[in-house]
Structures are given as structure tokens and as C-alpha cells.
């Protein structure tokens, strides 16, 4: 764009800066604040006396002898073995991403190359499936899963999340494969390859940017899920998000808020790193469906 467009009156510039600043604070400050508070004791982070205790750490000084404490982290990770939940989350997330992408690339490729009417109807069906609230599907699983005794196992949750993830994965990879020129694999087939050989030798080497972007979103879906993991996994196979919910306590069981705060910060950290490294892919993935369509 030309320089002409960028020249703005000073007052408008101030408005823009103030607005962006407000938004950035609204978007970022809660995370900073919670991270800061996770190193305090409950009496400071939720102070009955004065909220500035959270900054000065008065009770933390009294109870632990320092301005910061790792008690919340120790309690969550060691005492309440949050690490098993972290491990379970890792297993679930990696499996979901790998299986989703394997099934999704095959299906997405077929949908992009078919050109038949039924491929379009399948895509429409996937759109309908994507719109289904996850909890309505879960209420269909629960009874049969109890009956077959497969409730509470990680593989059950994994395959369910793969299925829930498929419509989105199919759509995204389908639109990605559409952008890979048809001639590429078709010329390989002219050279005597079967369709699958052409896919493996010609398409697989060039598909990684799209697969990585789609994989990021599969990762986020599996990592952020609460509905499926909270209802299909039991105490022994719990993942991070339902575990955090259990730290909050119920009427019958006592919780520990500071454990939950520490666990929340621990669970958010990987997402921060993810956004830091893959910001470009996330942005392009979000816009792929919208801007082109």
C-alpha cells in the first residue's frame, strides 16, 4: 500500500494505540497475573484482607519465609501426582494427532481428487457432523461403553476424539490438496504408478506444510478437550484438564485452589510455546477456510 494511506491524524493514532493497548492488556494480563499468583499462597492470591497482598506477598512471607513459593506446584505435581495426568495428556494428544492426520490425509486426498458428486455430499455430511455438540455424542457413547467395559481407557477416548476431529481434518486437508496441482500425481500415474503409489511418492513429500497446520488444530482440539476426557476417563486415566477441575473440589471433597492455579499455569505453558513457534501456521490455518471460500 502506498504511503498516502498510512498518514493519519494524530488524534486517530492515539485512539488506535489506546484501543490496541486495552485489548493487549485484556488478552495477556490474566495469564501474567495467574502465573505471578501461582507462586504465592492462597492467603495472598485470594486475600480476604487486601488484594495488594498478591503483589507484596505478605502471607507468603509469613507462611513460607520467602516472597515466592513453589508449594502450589509441589502439591499439584508431586502430592496430587499431576504428572500422571500430564503423561496421559501426552499419550492422548500424540495419538490423536497421528491417527487423525493419517486418516485425514487419505480421506482428504480422495475427496480433493474425486470430482464425483458423492465426494461433495460427503463433505456436506462432514460439515453436519462438525456442528454436533460433543456432549450430545458422548451421551450416546456412555451406555454402550459401560456395557462393553471399555469405559475409562485411554484408547477409547483417543478413538472418540479422532472421530470427532475427522470432519474438520477432512475439510482442511481437502482444501489443501486442492491447491496441489492435479498434474503432479496424474503424470506419475501415467508413468505406471497406482493411485496409492502416486500418493505416497509424489504427494506425501509435498504435503507437509498443510499437514503441519492441520496437525496443530488437531493438537489443540485434543489438548483442550474437557467434554470427552471428563466423561469417558476415570480417576486412574485422567488427563490434565479434568484433573484440574477435580482440584477445585466438590461439596463432598476438599479441593486446593492453589494446586489448581499451579496446574493451570503448567497446562498453559505448552500452549504458549506452541503459539510462539507456530503463530504463522495457526494464522494461516484459521484463514484458509474463510478468506479463500
Amino acid at each position: 500500500m502506498s504511503e498516502l494511506i498510512h498518514r493519519r491524524p494524530k488524534s486517530l493514532n492515539i485512539v488506535i494505540w489506546v484501543f490496541v493497548l486495552c485489548w493487549v492488556v485484556a488478552a495477556g494480563f490474566p495469564f501474567l497475573w495467574t502465573m505471578w499468583g501461582s507462586f504465592k499462597v492462597q492467603g495472598d492470591f485470594f486475600s480476604k484482607a487486601d488484594w495488594t497482598y498478591a503483589i507484596s506477598g505478605v502471607r507468603t512471607q509469613i507462611e513460607t519465609g520467602g516472597a515466592f513459593t513453589g508449594d502450589g506446584y509441589f502439591g499439584a505435581w508431586v502430592t496430587k501426582s499431576f504428572w500422571t495426568a500430564a503423561l496421559n495428556t501426552m499419550i492422548v494428544v500424540i495419538s490423536v494427532v497421528v491417527i487423525s492426520l493419517t486418516l485425514g490425509t487419505l480421506g482428504g486426498y480422495a475427496l480433493a481428487r474425486s470430482g464425483k458428486k458423492y465426494a461433495f455430499y460427503l463433505l456436506m455430511l462432514a460439515l453436519v457432523f462438525r456442528a454436533m455438540p460433543h456432549i450430545t455424542l458422548v451421551s450416546g457413547y456412555l451406555l454402550p461403553f459401560f456395557e462393553w467395559n471399555i469405559w475409562g481407557h485411554l484408547p477409547t477416548a483417543i478413538i472418540v476424539m479422532v472421530a470427532i476431529n475427522q470432519p474438520f481434518t477432512l475439510w482442511m486437508l481437502h482444501s489443501f490438496f486442492l491447491n496441489i496441482p492435479k498434474d503432479l500425481d496424474e503424470s506419475a500415474m501415467v508413468d505406471g504408478c497406482t493411485r496409492f503409489q502416486a500418493f505416497r511418492r509424489v504427494i506425501v513429500p509435498v504435503m507437509w506444510p498443510g499437514v503441519i497446520t492441520t496437525g496443530l488444530f488437531s493438537f489443540l482440539l485434543a489438548y483442550n478437550d474437557f467434554t470427552v476426557t471428563a466423561t469417558l476417563l476415570g480417576q486412574s486415566s485422567q488427563t490434565m484438564v479434568p484433573k484440574i477441575a477435580s482440584f477445585l473440589g466438590t461439596t463432598q471433597t476438599e479441593g486446593n485452589v492453589m494446586f489448581a492455579v499451579a496446574a493451570v499455569v503448567s497446562a498453559t505453558a505448552p500452549l504458549f510455546i506452541l503459539v510462539m513457534f507456530f503463530q504463522r501456521q495457526i494464522v494461516s490455518g484459521l484463514t484458509a477456510g474463510a478468506v479463500k471460500g
Binding site: V41, Q42, G43, F46, A49, E63
Partner: peptide, 8 residues
């Protein structure tokens, strides 16, 4: 209610 933590 009675322990030192979180209470004054």
C-alpha cells in the same frame, strides 16, 4: 476455619 492458613 481454625488453621493458620488462609485465615487471620
Amino acid at each position: 476455619v481454625l488453621d493458620g492458613e488462609g485465615s487471620t
